[in-house]
Design a protein around this nucleic acid. Structure first.
Lengths: 226, 226
DNA sequence: CAGTGGTCTAGACCACGCA
DNA sequence: GCGTGGTCTAGACCACTGG
């Protein structure tokens, strides 16, 4: 156990136990230096980590204070479909249902490849996918058929380090969607919309539709544990 | 601009631009020390932050390497209902529709308070809520009516620093739910289930139901920006 | 204006793991 | 064995800001 971590966990335990309550000032750096018999650098690193995780606030001249809790953000595990399906014990399969090139799409200067397909788990359709891939950012995509490999896996190998924005909604399936999924029209579905950038260039935009009764997302929030 | 941050952004820019690709080794600490003319501590802090954010991997004796991208987690902003509704320009209102004490609930040793209610935005029902509050962790809850104040706000003031787990699904509204929400039975709804702990004690469990067409969650993923 | 946190330095020792 | 990253030290200067 490193000292840095021990200091963090000591302080976190006092906060979680209620011994130090929101708004309370915790000991100054130089006091913690005396308590733990270490250098200021080590204490500073521990407090810095606690501040980054949102558990404390630090103010010059005033000291460090227990922050007021705000359970307003959580880490959401976005599913890798192939893995999620494999974890359920099913065999994953991608089936492309359509592909075209849109040379002039309003949202994609330089054009886009549009791919439609279905992610299967065993014999059941697990998710529908409708995807745009920007040719300006990923010119290689124009030569790719996406028959044997799903676009997400292909993109992961061809486009390094992206950022993303996800939208999550509940929608009723249209008739065509429901037919493909093998459920009744109007069945509740979880709609995941993801836009992905590399630096400031849009790389891909995808809409994935999951059966509401077969799929759920999980988000964890553990301040200080990050 | 601090030097620590400048080093981080330099390296991140080279990774995002593709100059350094996944799997590539980036310069050793002592090389970066020479490049930036600073101490090893500063370089180490910068690389440590990049590693924590998942942009690089560090291995003893081998060096630091550009990680392979994995867009599998994102920071989800969990809505504060009152704020979310206010942001839409509506007036927020909580209406309790039920409250009882369950002294012997299987999941809550020590019993629980069970609260039902509706979150309104203007005249429209925005979300339904069904909540358990563990009396073992929050004994004060037995005396609280939750008429004037919604349980989430009350809990925020009475139970500091919790961790939580969220589940997100799409469901079809039951007849009773749909009537309360003023929509047709079977309408798609976003179901948010949150369980909250303080240390290892379960504090509360809530199921919130949102109209799918009036509500969406947003999750951002920006490696290195965290 | 005095004391805090923010940042940085120039060392040090150590464990690990590749060669 | 030996070089790497992981951790820590005992200082230092500075900007900010609360009293």
């Amino acid at each position: 156990m490193t000292l840095d971590r021990r200091i963090r966990e000591d302080i976190e335990a006092r906060i979680r136990s209620g011994e130090w309550r929101p708004g309370d000032r915790i000991p100054f750096e130089h006091e913690l230096v005396a308590i733990y018999g270490c250098s200021r650098g080590t204490v500073g690193k521990a407090l810095g980590a606690l501040a980054k995780s949102g558990l404390i606030e630090r103010r010059r001249k005033a000291g460090s204070f227990v922050a007021h809790p705000q359970v307003h953000s959580a880490v959401l595990e976005m599913p890798d479909l192939a893995q999620a399906i494999a974890a359920r014990g099913d065999v994953y399969r991608w089936q492309r249902t359509g592909r075209e090139v849109a040379p002039n799409h309003a949202d994609f200067p330089g054009g886009a490849v549009v791919v439609d397909g279905v992610h299967f788990g065993g014999d059941e359709a697990f998710a529908l996918e409708h995807r745009f891939i920007a040719l300006a950012a990923v010119p290689d995509a124009v030569a790719e058929r996406f028959v044997d490999e799903a676009p997400d896996e292909w993109l992961l190998r061809h486009v390094p380090w992206t950022s993303a924005r996800h939208g999550i909604r509940a929608v009723a399936m249209t008739r065509g969607e429901a037919e493909t999924m093998g459920v009744r029209t109007g069945t509740a579905a979880l709609e995941l919309t993801r836009t992905t950038w590399r630096s400031s260039d849009m790389v891909t935009r995808v809409r994935q539709l999951f059966r509401g009764d077969r799929f759920d997302l999980v988000a964890e929030f553990h301040p200080g544990t990050r």
